[in-house]
Design a protein around this nucleic acid. Structure first.
Lengths: 143, 143
DNA sequence: TTAACTCTTTAGAAAGAGTCTATTTCCCAT
DNA sequence: ATGGGAAATAGACTCTTTCTAAAGAGTTAA
């Protein structure tokens, strides 16, 4: 289903750009995530990577996704109380979340803008803004 | 710390308004939640309720919070990957979430408006819109 | 080539939130 | 009082995520 990967060379380049030591496991995970812009849970990453032949442990998947998030290579999306999604599209954008089928999809950035940024609580700095539009109903599977 | 409760009469009234059978356990949980507008996790509810003398089991806390959410008495807030918060303020509003200390606070609704609602995915209906502004840094404890 | 060192990966145990199940308790109408 | 349905309970269980202690890989220095 999801078997095409980004090229190894490109994955390595992306890792090095962010000062991430390009180990075998990190390269394979990057190849998977950056095959195309998408949202994956840790479990999905684990399953897909293992299909690709390279052995990667569960702990390494979690470590690697956390590292990628910390280095800005992917973005964590918190919408489903049961698991974290990792988004390989780091261009600023927001999400639809279908509460019936758990499907997460992007909102075109142009079609959603905040009118103004409210005053932040004292002593805090902005980290990011997440807009989640929750929808119900069986949407078509994405192409 | 958090020992004042809403009155029993008021709690019963709120439950009945939403067609919820006002049992002992549900009343105590409602008294706790509606003492003031606030955000609580299931675990916090469990601990606070047990302090108040009435015995309530963990399962009942989870069942009750789900029921309250389903009936529109509270709103689930998904911001922290490790737990769900229940918000007893159901007036439409959005949230600041401090990623350093886990503190959740309300955004004055007037200060944050979306410019336009994007087109929803085919076959879906709107369920709700959540805006979360993530901040960093040690904010002062709330009064 | 080996030795020393650091960084990464690993299996499996453990933590923590939330759910489930089978049983008991509660409450009310008869 | 009693029969019945709704609610509550203890505790086992599931699932995601984190931790731990040990093994492996890669690099440099001699």
């Amino acid at each position: 289903m999801n078997n095409q990967l980004a090229s190894k060379a490109e994955a390595i380049r992306m890792l090095q750009e962010r000062d991430i030591n390009p180990t075998q496991q990190r390269i394979v995970i990057a190849q998977l995530l950056f095959a195309r812009p998408q949202h994956m849970s840790a479990e999905q990453v684990l399953m897909n990577v293992q299909d690709s032949g390279v052995h990667v442990s569960k702990a390494t998947v979690y470590n690697t996704l956390s590292l990628f998030a910390e280095k800005g290579l992917v973005k964590e999306v918190i919408v489903d109380p049961t698991k974290v999604f990792y988004d390989s599209n780091i261009v600023p954008h927001h999400h639809f979340f279908n509460i019936d089928n758990g499907q997460l999809s992007d909102i075109d950035d142009a079609s959603l803008q905040l009118q103004a940024m409210p005053q932040l609580p004292d002593g805090t700095q902005l980290d990011g803004v997440d807009v989640i539009i929750r929808v119900r109903g069986q949407q078509q599977a994405q192409a």
